[in-house]
């Protein structure tokens, strides 16, 4: 039972990130039904209230839709999911750039390093 959580950050946010990851990677397909609040609470080992809050936040950003009496579903709107992907990527890249800047790398150097890294990965795959 359970996911590992960082107890210093709100769990509902971490759970949201976990679910967003699944949706973006299409492990959870558009239109797919999410587990019930209680099921997910048992599965990841948290309080059901936390899951409810996560679902509520996700609904607010239109990533999921709650149909009365049926449950919560991943949105079928591909555009919204694409936007989500973009938002997460933006956020991560911003954080990454700030961090690199903090260790004294210029933006040119970061870009250079990134290109080299990606090239290396591509070669390794081949």
């Amino acid at each position: 039972m359970g996911l590992k959580f960082d107890h210093n950050r709100p769990i509902y946010i971490q759970l949201m990130e976990y679910l967003y990851g699944q949706i973006c990677r299409s492990e959870m397909k558009p239109g797919e039904k999410l587990p019930s609040v209680r099921e997910l609470a048992v599965k990841v080992g948290v309080n059901p209230n936390t899951v409810s809050r996560t679902y509520m936040e996700m609904e607010r950003t239109h990533i999921v839709v709650t149909k009365r009496g049926q449950g919560t579903f991943v949105t079928e709107d591909a555009k919204t999911i694409q936007e989500l992907r973009k938002t997460i990527a933006d956020q991560q890249i911003d954080d990454f750039i700030v961090m690199m800047n903090q260790v004294g790398l210029s933006n040119e150097e970061i870009s250079q390093l990134m290109l080299e890294k990606l090239k290396k990965r591509r070669e390794e795959k081949e």
Binding site: H7, N8, R9, P10, I11, Y12, T50, R53
Partner: peptide
């Protein structure tokens, strides 16, 4: 508990 994490960045243990 979530308030604790949100406002103070603290876990319950901390």
């Amino acid at each position: 508990v979530e308030q604790l994490r949100e406002e103070k960045g603290q876990s319950v243990v901390e």
